[in-house]
Design a protein around this nucleic acid. Structure first.
Lengths: 188, 188
DNA sequence: GATTTCACTCAACAGTCGTTGACTCAACGA
DNA sequence: TCGTTGAGTCAACGACTGTTGAGTGAAATC
């Protein structure tokens, strides 16, 4: 057939990619503890020993699988912060990168995933807080972040019937006022 | 010492209780998959085989540990629904019953815990929805429930620094307007 | 007081897991 | 062309898991 002979470096790259894809998918589906090296290797069409040879350990494989981008930041106004959050919802409802899903799926049971989640949420909170007025900005930023986390968990991981098939625009529309009141813009 | 001789039935009851307490605590701390029968038995000061003899299997033990009360319902107005939610937050911030914590901890990785969580959240949503006006009441009820879930997860399970030591009244105060806008009371 | 019941323990089985070392064979450099 | 590198496989080890069956001794029953 069209079986081209690939140079070694390229072949290595592709195999590593297949393993990482399989790992991300499995971690996202069943979480860290239920995902097995054998399962990942099987899904990638590869021997389990190869996974170990490439990534060293299951922990390290997980670490590579959930590597998360450092969030490109720019100065935002308090107003557009809400839209940015709702935008991240849009991406969350569609195809949230499987690496993030894997991290979220495991964050309640795998200590390292929990630490990673704390870090990601923490810098999200930091970004929000410095765009919000008031001295309890951090607390309100944390609550806004957790609102989004709750919705993402309910939709992506628990797959609640009430959110199934609901267009993200409608969720964003309903959530917008709630997030807006948390910005502390309006005087009480 | 004061070692009274207990009748068999009473002794059995106490031992089962110790096992269930240990199970709830361990399930809540590390989740279903990382909790072991040996760990539960050790914490209860009992042989692992006894846990099996009493509860049949690890699954059954978990089922008994997370048994949740059927939520005593009464007809509520749309207004007081928010206060009821915030009240459940109060209990969530303090000592949410360990059984519920165990269920929450495991809901992302253990399929049966996920099903249980879906059921509990579902009936919570139902209660809310029938107290809310509008035809998208169920969706708004689901979002309100997920808001609370997100806060509970962030505080109880992830233990975010931003929420550590924050009195529940302040969280309730900040969350109240957000939940209120989700009731759909105000015209747009 | 003899017998039965039952709470509880001990030791082991069988399966699965992460991990490892020796091995095969094709691509590479000289 | 020949030795070397490295991608990939195979079989196994040791640890840990849920689970089980036989066994022990004290409380319950007669």
């Amino acid at each position: 057939m069209g079986e081209r002979v690939l140079p070694r470096a390229e072949r290595r790259r592709r195999t590593e990619g297949k393993i990482l894809d399989a790992a991300r998918s499995l971690f996202a589906d069943v979480g860290y503890e239920r995902a097995t090296i054998r399962g990942v290797a099987g899904a990638a069409g590869v021997d389990p020993a190869l996974v170990m040879q490439y990534f060293g350990s299951k922990e390290e494989l997980f670490r590579h699988a959930v590597r998360v981008m450092p969030a490109p930041d720019g100065e935002l106004g308090a107003e557009e912060v809400v839209e940015h959050l709702l935008g991240s919802l849009t991406v969350k409802m569609g195809e949230l990168p499987q690496g993030s899903l894997a991290m979220m799926r495991s964050m309640l049971t795998h200590p390292e995933a929990a630490a990673s989640a704390r870090q990601v949420l923490g810098q999200q909170i930091d970004r929000l807080a410095e765009a919000l007025p008031g001295d309890d900005a951090r607390l309100r930023a944390a609550l806004m972040t957790l609102v989004m986390l709750g919705v993402a968990v309910g939709h992506q991981l628990l797959e609640l019937d009430e959110l199934r098939g609901v267009p993200q625009e409608e969720i964003a529309r309903l959530l917008r006022p709630s997030l807006h009141t948390l910005t502390g813009q309006d005087v009480s």
